[in-house]
């Protein structure tokens, strides 16, 4: 969920901007000039994946896959998602200009954490460990993203507590769906194209 402009308080906005600037700087440092086109094309694939709506009861949810993006991109998740969010702001006004920092941090930082936790599991290379890595990546990615949004709302004002609770509850079904999907994707990628995941067979 992306927070719009005009909602969060100044300290929250500034903190988000500083953290995202740091993460983006780290990511750009790791990004070699020659790999810019490759990274960009992968991040457009994640952008397109986030436009996919999967059914959930009478409604639907769109894929986020920030955990999977984290596993594949590492620290480069920060610049990749910063750009995805920037494009969303310009193309269809999801999110906002002043909240670019906060929203990027909410999505990218859980991805980076997923990278550090799940990579050792992928290196083991057994189907069970890969499934576990997928489930963990989704749980970490989505639940932390939801938690960050909720915390930012609460830090902005006590009046936001009911909304923050609602945000947390809304993330639970998404976690389950993403866990299934991420686990299947990781198994598929590990069989068909392990170099995307940065593990050699």
């Amino acid at each position: 969920m992306h927070i719009s402009d005009g909602i969060l308080s100044v300290p929250v906005l500034v903190t988000g901007a500083i953290l995202t600037a740091g993460g983006t700087a780290l990511g750009l440092k790791r990004l070699r000039h020659e790999t810019v086109p490759q990274t960009a094309i992968l991040s457009s694939a994640f952008f397109v994946a986030s436009l996919i709506h999967v059914p959930l009861g009478p409604s639907s949810v769109h894929l986020i896959l920030n955990g999977l993006a984290g596993i594949i991109l590492g620290w480069i998740t920060f610049p990749a998602l910063l750009i995805a969010l920037f494009l969303q702001t310009i193309l269809f006004q999801f999110g906002g200009l002043t909240t670019l920092g906060v929203n990027t941090f909410n999505m990218a930082f859980p991805g980076v954490i997923a990278y550090f936790i799940c990579h050792p599991l992928l290196k083991i290379g057994k189907p069970h460990s890969i499934t576990l890595a997928g489930i963990l990546a989704a749980v970490i990615g989505i639940s932390l993203a939801g938690l960050f949004v909720a915390l930012e709302l609460v830090f902005t004002g006590q009046g936001f507590i009911p909304v923050a609770k609602l945000v947390l509850v809304a993330h639970v079904p998404v976690i389950i769906i993403e866990a299934i999907i991420t686990a299947v994707i990781l198994n598929f990628l590990h069989k068909a194209k392990p170099e995307i995941l940065g593990v050699d067979k």
Binding site: I41, L65, I185, F188
Partner: peptide, 22 residues
């Protein structure tokens, strides 16, 4: 589950195709 698996395969092949394209 079947639907979610199908979408997962779809996204995975999208990622592989994008990687090859890149």
């Amino acid at each position: 589950i079947y639907t979610y698996k199908t979408y997962a395969y779809l996204v995975a092949s999208l990622l592989i195709k994008s990687y090859d394209r890149s």
